[in-house]
Design a binder for these strands. Sequence first.
DNA 1: AAGCAAATTAACCGGCTGGTACAAAGCTCT
DNA 2: AGAGCTTTGTACCAGCCGGTTAATTTGCTT
Lengths: 219, 219
Amino acid sequence: MSEAGENTRKKARSWKQDPEAVRADILCAARAEFAEHGLSGARVQDIADRIQTSKRMIFYYFGDKEGLYRAVLDEAYRSVRKAEAELELDGLPPEEALRKLVEFTFDHHRANADFIRLVMIENIHGARHMHEIDSLSQTNTAAIGQIERICTAGIDAGLFRADVSPLEIHWQISGMSFFNVANMATFSVNFGPDLFTDDAQLRLRETVVNSILASVRAT
Amino acid sequence: MSEAGENTRKKARSWKQDPEAVRADILCAARAEFAEHGLSGARVQDIADRIQTSKRMIFYYFGDKEGLYRAVLDEAYRSVRKAEAELELDGLPPEEALRKLVEFTFDHHRANADFIRLVMIENIHGARHMHEIDSLSQTNTAAIGQIERICTAGIDAGLFRADVSPLEIHWQISGMSFFNVANMATFSVNFGPDLFTDDAQLRLRETVVNSILASVRAT
DNA sequence: AAGCAAATTAACCGGCTGGTACAAAGCTCT
DNA sequence: AGAGCTTTGTACCAGCCGGTTAATTTGCTT
């Protein structure tokens, strides 16, 4: 019974201190757990079990369950916005830039299902916890900047309608890209899984690009 | 302490039996509770407290918490699909029909936030519970029928592209209409609440109509 | 090496929550 | 009216789970 875990890193008789690594481990395990089960569905013990640590550590570093949840949410948003910011579109012609942005968002959402699920969960809670995280509003509003630049360029070139709304465009792109991941489960049950094979997703992404481009194009 | 509730309908000394009403009441209260807090977040006691009944009744009629949740989900889908089926589009020209369908879906989703939240919750659970409800798949696949008819009419008239996919169109309409309600909370926090005023929603709905129509139109 | 704060462990607790046992009250049928 | 079913109320329980207490270990500083 007491002989378990001889090759584990931290347990078994003696352990090394590595607070930052522990903190990061907890955050990572918590993200998975929260994404999978939601805030109330997640079990602190299960988070501890996912990594080589004890329940106590979680409260030690994050205060309580909600504090941990908030930290997870914060870090998740931060990393996503960072990825978005790294997308370089400034050199491209407007239509091409918009296409790239749609394709990126669509793919990125698919590749980060955990983040999507966290946002779903946060919406279930009426975004109550996001309000308590300051730093986010700044990072996020910046996401519109790219679209704004594309739009002004497109309008100036006479390619886009003069009344396009960058915010509405972002809403549309986000909406479909988000829905695609968030509602895959129920959509598959209701209408079959055909839309979610790899090549169907490629076609679907192109459909989204077409819709967005068609709706901004000057007549 | 024990004198409470003289004017309540069922308690206080003597009560009338009305099983179907109780069942319906529970279902209604449960829908609200589940929509608000999710499956694990919902409290059976709180559901009982919302109406004039005891926790005991809930287990009596629905077996356990998940049974109740399943019943709620079933009823919710059923009523929504019923409303969809009542929409009459067959007489209209294709573009007009499609416009009406988009407008209806957009409005209907907004007006049924509880349903949206239930679907969000069910997606968090990977649609696990929907699989255990038979009757749904039939009701739901029928929802595509309308779009199929519109598309064939549109293609035959040379108004729509020949390669439009009814399923993809449904996906787009659902996606944006769903996202609009489901992610209102986080979207507002991130980008401000401007898009969710009544008249902004009217414009947004028109934007969705435009995108869909523009993307199906023959060049 | 001693002192001290930070990191970690193990055991524990209180109360909440899903679920139940049991009895009492209504309803139906004869 | 009363037997036998369904429906409802009350009290209760067992276990889970977030959170805590207290003691032990590590490592830094002097």
